[in-house]
Write a protein that binds this DNA or RNA. Structure first.
Length: 246
DNA sequence: GCATTAACACGTA
DNA sequence: TACGTGTTAATGC
């Protein structure tokens, strides 16, 4: 997605397993892909699932570290990024609630290839590598979910290349928002995306003031409604195609 | 011209 | 109180 420079991160050390806890029933109920599993599989996932709360700036996983978990965002907002040789971070995508990530790394049992960092206080779940492979080996429903996930995300990264070539700030904001509102990749978002204009600026690569102006334009176009601490989508197709062809 | 940073007042959680 | 928003002014490419 767009390149974005983020402010210096406070001493982010990575998440220790000792801080994790089991998921409660409400959190399990919010994980959509569990519904595609059988009883036995669901029970093993529930037993294996770990949950941590991460603070702003904290790293969920760091590039080069050995793979430990397949992660999901239960609440909050993360960003996926890498550092360039010059030390400038480039942001690939934001990860809002309902998003699961890291399956490519888990599949290959390779070190993480991206940094995943919390933009705000967030709740992150993870299942172990062995459980992930165990599910792949026996659950058609899980395979279907993972395949669909990979397919949808491929579409997102193609769209991200388009966004990169768009220079108009309003259009960049519109399409980046549309990506974050993806109902299959981020089913926890719903109609209201909790994101500050500052955070959106980090993801899109624009100043907060310019994001504010873009949001006002998109609101005037009846595509979104700007709310305190978030954005409500009114016309997802319109956002995705902004500015509308005529 | 247009986006950025800085700064401020104001409203909300 | 702390944070997020909306706005203006000065600065830079």
């Amino acid at each position: 997605m767009p390149t974005a420079v983020l402010p210096p991160t406070s001493g982010a050390q990575g998440v220790r397993v000792s801080r994790s806890r089991a998921a409660h029933a409400g959190e399990l109920a919010g994980i959509g892909w569990l519904g595609g599993l059988g009883v036995v599989e669901r029970e093993r996932v529930a037993a294996d699932l770990r949950v941590v709360t991460v603070q702003p700036g904290e790293l969920v996983c760091r590039i080069g570290r050995p793979v430990t978990y397949w992660f999901g965002v239960l609440d909050g907002l993360l960003k996926m990024s890498n550092d360039t040789a010059l030390g400038m971070p480039i942001t690939f995508t934001g990860l809002p609630p309902g998003g699961w990530f890291g399956e490519g790394t888990v599949l290959k049992r390779e070190p993480y290839r991206y940094n995943i960092q919390a933009l705000r206080k967030s709740v992150v779940a993870g299942i172990g590598v062995e459980t992930f492979h165990w599910l792949l080996d026996r659950s058609i429903g899980f395979n279907r979910f993972v395949m669909n996930q990979l397919n949808e995300r491929l579409g997102q990264f193609i769209a991200a290349r388009e966004i990169d070539r768009i220079t108009q700030p309003d259009a960049r904001v519109a399409r980046s928002l549309a990506a974050l509102f993806h109902p299959l990749l981020y089913p926890g978002v719903g109609d209201l995306l909790r994101i500050t204009q500052q955070e959106l600026g980090y993801l899109v690569g624009l100043s907060r003031q310019r994001v504010n102006e873009a949001l006002a334009a998109l609101g005037a176009a009846r595509l979104i409604r700007v709310e305190y601490g978030g954005v409500r989508v009114l016309d997802l197709a319109g956002l995705r195609g902004y500015p509308a062809a005529r």
